[in-house]
Structure formats: C-alpha cells, structure tokens
Amino acid sequence: MPSSKNNLTNKHVLICRTDAVGDMVLAMPVCGLIKEYFPSCKISVLGRTYTRDIAQASRHIDGFVNFDDWQGKSVEEINTLLATEKIDVAIHLKDLSTVAWQLKRAGIKKRIGTTNRLYHWFTCNTLVPLSRKNSGLHEAQLNVKLLRGLNIKRDLSWNEVSDYYGLSRFQPLNPTFEALLSPDKFNLIIHPKSHKNSKEWSLDNYSKLVHRIDQNRFKVFISGSQKEHEELLPWVQQHEGLITDISGKLPLSQFITFISQADGLIACSTGPVHIAAAAGIFTLGLYTDIKTKDAGRWGPVGKKAESLTAVNADMETITVDDILNKINAWQKP
C-alpha cells in the first residue's frame, strides 16, 4: 500500500499520453489501478483532440486536458489553463520534453518520469528506472511500472491488464448504424489500414480472405478513417455484395460503440485492435516480428484477443488459412 505521503485521496492526477488512440487505450490500466487504490481521486489525461472520445469511454478517467489547446499559446497562458485544473500529480507515460518542461513551469507538485530520459532529471522530481526499448513487457505493463513513483508496486500480468481498462462508457449507437448489425450472423469488422503507422497485411490478401469467409455465418464490415475510405474505395467497390463499407462514416465515439456491439475484429497494429480487445470482443491482431513493434509489445490484450505474427518482418507469411482457422473457431455470443 502506498505511504501516507503518496496518498491520493481527493487528489487530481494527470496522466500524460499525447499520441494515438491505441496508446490511450493502453494507458487506461494505469488509471484503473490508481482508482483501485484511491477511488476518490480524480484522474485526467493529457491527450490530443482525436483521442478525447476514447479517453472519455473509460470509467476510470474523469477529465480530459487537451494538448492541442496549448498550441500557439505562451508558457504563461498554458500555466493559466493548468491552474484551473488544480493538478497535484503528473505522470509522463509519453516522452515529450515540451510537456515535461511545461508541467514543471506550471508548478505541479509531484512530477513522475523515468531515469532513461535526460530531460526528466531536470523536469521531474520523482524518477522511476525504466527502459522500454530493452524490456520484454507489453506497453500496458510498462506504463504501470511508472506507478512506482507513487509507491504502487503492483505489476499486472498479461491476463490482468484487461481487468483495468474500464471501457464501458459507450454512447448510444445511432439507429442507422445499429440497423447494420446482424442479429443472427457473426458481425466481423475488418480494419485493413493503419495510416502506414504499422506493417499491414495487403489488400490482395484481404480480398482472398473476404471471398473465402462463410457469408452464411459472417457479416463482414470494412472500417477505416475518412482518409482511408478514399484509399479503400476502389477495393470496396470490387467486393460489393460481400462486405458492408462503414469506413469514414462513423465519428470515433460511434465507432467505439459499434466495435463494442460487433462480435469480432481483425486489424494490424492500430487503434481499433486495442479498442476491440478492451471492449471484450473477439480480436485478431496481425503483427510483424520486429522487436519493439511485435505483438509482445503492442499486441491486443483482452479476454478474447489473440495475434498472428509474421516471419522475418514479411506480413505475407501470415496466410488466409491462418486467419480462417482463427475466426472460424469464434462463436457469436
């Protein structure tokens, strides 16, 4: 149990994670674990505009501080914004020197960083020994290590991580989108792109997969962002009648709910694969074997989540049969 000097009862904790949607999902267990020890504390996250909806979907997160609101403002103006939040503790899950310096200048009393970032020695007053690059742990498990700065020395096993997402605040699904979900078939979402942020399985392979999926058992949805919708459109048109295209049609808040009400999802290392795992539906991640980018570090973690791993960084070594063997074993709840 944390010592009295680390008592967060009625305190305000800021979790800093200013990158992507999937990263925000993997920060949720930190929030859930803090809440387990200090249910009355307030937890906010510092994130980007596009991660607000996923942050607000976790019951462990009470507030959102928008990093994008800092853009174009002076240090003093940002300090004024932060002063209204009355933050007691800041934990740097994302390494960003500008954030670290700003929170120091704002006078936040306790600032937790890692010994492996030189600027944290100057901007933080509590340092945790942590090397992400050389660790064999998952990103969610590494995030939890930062809680040692609060004397919370609890580690989460792979199987325990999913107990701490708290992904349960789903917005009501628009009836138009709800009507797309089949009450009888297994609703399978395929999210083929990643904005080139990770190794992707080719569209040619997805085409072969779609043609071999049992249409009597599965209803297949293709998802993606608005930008990806434009990229996918010719491919989607080639598969009319086999798939339902929802790419670019749902705002993130609705897409989160849609995923939670579907039955399964296939994707590479990108945000939706983590949303699906956290929502508790069947999830299959397609991953490279490159260290620091593999499933061991970035794979989906959930009660119904699993991954397939390429050989020698060649995503083509994941076969259609590999995927069919996985999804054909999935059963609609």
Rank of each mutant, 00 (worst) to 15 (best):
R48T: 08
I275M: 12
D23A: 04
Q102T: 15
Q171M: 07
P300V: 13
T123S: 15
D23N: 12
N7S: 13
G22K: 01
G47A: 14
H138L: 06
K219G: 08
K332Y: 11
H120T: 02
E240H: 11
L173A: 07
S247L: 03
Y287A: 05
N125C: 09
R52V: 01
I78F: 02
K227E: 15
L181Y: 08
A295P: 01
T319E: 10
S97Y: 10
K249M: 13
Q226N: 11
K249P: 00
G280H: 05
S194Y: 04
P234T: 06
W235F: 15
R297C: 08
D19L: 11
N216E: 15
G224H: 06
E306T: 15
N116H: 09
K196A: 15
F186A: 01
S260I: 01
N151F: 07
K35L: 09
T270L: 11
G280R: 05
K133I: 10
N187T: 10
N116V: 01
G22M: 06
I281F: 06
P272C: 12
A305M: 05
L81S: 03
K332W: 07
A313T: 00
K227R: 14
K304A: 06
L137H: 12
C124L: 02
H229A: 15
V89R: 04
T244E: 15
L250H: 11
Q102V: 08
I190Y: 03
D289L: 00
P333W: 09
G264W: 07
H239S: 06
F218W: 06
C268K: 00
T115H: 09
K133Y: 08
H195C: 13
I246P: 04
Y50V: 10
V236I: 15
T126P: 03
D245E: 09
S44L: 02
I61W: 00
F186I: 05
Q331D: 14
T176K: 15
N216D: 15
I91A: 08
D88W: 11
R105G: 05
S198I: 03
W158N: 10
